[in-house]
């Protein structure tokens, strides 16, 4: 039996002013070391679920249910205690890489700041740790360390954010559509960096995406969300082959597969005749 790390139970969110329901009865679990995908179309409530765990919900939202992180309910523990878990226990990488770091402060300085917020080490040690993790994820550490975020590419910024997770060693890493704004090759490099963090720190990953291929290839379990509800849950094979919900069926039918080499040879042969 795997040990539970994050357990979301009956989570519902609605707007206070117009009572619009944003999330309805969400039940989701992430076990230690597991990589779990939360998949669904834009506006289905994936990011909102993540923001509940990150404590980043707007004040005009009414939240009910439970969000247990290592048996502590994040919703009732108070803002200060919740905030203390962020970074060192719950790491985050966001979709908007341009907003991942403060634009006018050098990346290295922000890494040192984050490390020193969680570990009582001096600036020099924090700097060395930052350079070390940047090297670990195959970035030109010194150059990146002295750059401003706007001087880096999207993929580089995302990898720096992942590198920071390597330094802070959170038990849960929330990746919110981290490859959406990147090209395919950069996206793959970023996902490889996530694999590396998992391998080295043993952290669990809540991987939010709308790309079923990525979820299928990289995760242990998949939750499918639609209109603020979780409509299906299962292993990648179950979701792909034994899905029950019409939305999952539609999602799977949208999967484009490239023609195989044999197929291409047949086409080429037909053209040459």
């Amino acid at each position: 039996m795997k040990e539970s790390l994050l357990s979301i139970q009956n989570l519902s969110i609605r707007m206070i002013d117009d009572h619009q329901i944003l999330l309805q009865n969400i039940n989701l679990a992430v076990n230690k070391g597991e990589m779990v995908a939360l998949i669904g179309e834009s506006g289905s409530g994936k990011s909102l679920t993540a923001r509940t765990v990150q404590g980043l919900l707007a004040s005009n939202m009414m939240v009910t249910g439970h969000v247990f992180y290592q048996n502590n309910n994040l919703l009732s523990m108070g803002k200060r205690n919740h905030h203390q878990l962020l970074g060192s226990e719950i790491g985050s990488v966001f979709q908007d890489y341009r907003g991942s770091f403060t634009p006018f402060i050098k990346v290295g300085k922000q890494m040192v700041e984050a490390i020193r917020s969680h570990f009582s080490i001096n600036k020099k040690e924090a700097r060395e740790l930052s350079l070390h993790v940047l090297e670990e994820i195959h970035l030109n550490s010194k150059q990146i360390f002295h750059s401003y975020p706007f001087q880096l590419s999207g993929g580089q910024v995302q990898r720096v954010a992942i590198g920071l997770a390597l330094a802070l060693k959170p038990k849960l890493l929330i990746c919110d559509e981290i490859t959406t704004a990147l090209d395919v090759m950069s996206g793959e490099t970023v996902l490889d960096a996530i694999e590396k963090v998992r391998k080295e720190t043993g952290c669990a990953v809540l991987f939010i995406t709308h790309d079923l291929v990525q979820a299928y290839k990289r995760t242990d379990r998949i939750y499918v969300m639609q209109k603020g509800k979780i409509v299906e849950e299962g292993s990648p094979v179950q979701i792909r082959c034994e899905h029950k919900h019409p939305y999952t069926k539609k999602l799977c039918s949208c999967l484009l597969s490239l023609p195989g080499e044999d197929h291409l040879q047949i086409i080429q042969g037909a053209q040459s005749v």
Binding site: H83, L86, G87, S92, F94, R98, G99, F101, T102, S117
Partner: peptide, 21 residues
């Protein structure tokens, strides 16, 4: 703004977020 949320998510203290970021 997103960069302030990202700083919060990194666990930076509120005081530092307000005055430095």
């Amino acid at each position: 703004s997103p960069y302030i949320e990202a700083a919060k998510a990194r666990g930076i203290s509120k005081r530092r977020i307000v005055f430095f970021h």
